[in-house]
């Protein structure tokens, strides 16, 4: 009987371990195990992406609609070619939308904000967002500001 209760306690312990893992995965790290509707890729060229990294979020009006999947240097134009994976259910982004690299708070991380245009045609897989705004680099801003002062 004593052995039995130990087995039950140990079982509870192991279960608590598994639950902890799930809590960490879902609640803490926001591991999305929910519906996976697939994504489609949209490209954008930026002159400066300063601080944008893979897995940075892509948002429309502050709502996350995808993430940065790939960043590479375009050898012809020397601009950064960013591939974004946009959630499949967000399929009404007009082709004349603007992609801007924004900062989350003053010191936060960089993300891409999509500002919708008025065109009635929508971006599909493999399309390129033509209108882009590069990241604001804090040092450049400060530099310009100082130059004006003197």
């Amino acid at each position: 009987m004593q052995i039995r209760s130990i087995e039950i306690i140990v079982g509870t312990f192991m279960l608590a371990g598994i639950v902890s893992l799930i809590v960490l995965a879902v609640q803490i790290s926001g591991f999305n195990v929910g519906t996976e509707t697939g994504t489609y890729s949209v490209y954008a060229r930026f002159e400066n992406i300063s601080g944008l990294v893979i897995r940075s979020k892509v948002s429309i009006g502050g709502v996350m609609v995808g993430q940065v999947a790939d960043i590479e240097l375009d050898p012809d134009t020397y601009t950064a070619l960013v591939r974004m994976e946009i959630d499949g259910d967000v399929d009404t982004i007009s082709t004349d939308s603007t992609a801007a690299i924004l900062t989350d708070g003053l010191l936060g991380g960089k993300y891409i904000g999509l500002i919708l245009g008025a065109e009635e045609e929508y971006l599909t897989d493999g399309d390129v967002v033509l209108d882009t705004q590069s990241a604001i680099v804090l040092e450049e801003l400060i530099g310009k500001f100082l130059l004006k002062q003197f």
Binding site: I28, S29, G30, K57
Partner: peptide
Amino acid sequence: FWSAMQEGVDFRSHV
């Protein structure tokens, strides 16, 4: 508090 955590903590590269 929670959303910044969920966004910043990555399962594979942190947990």
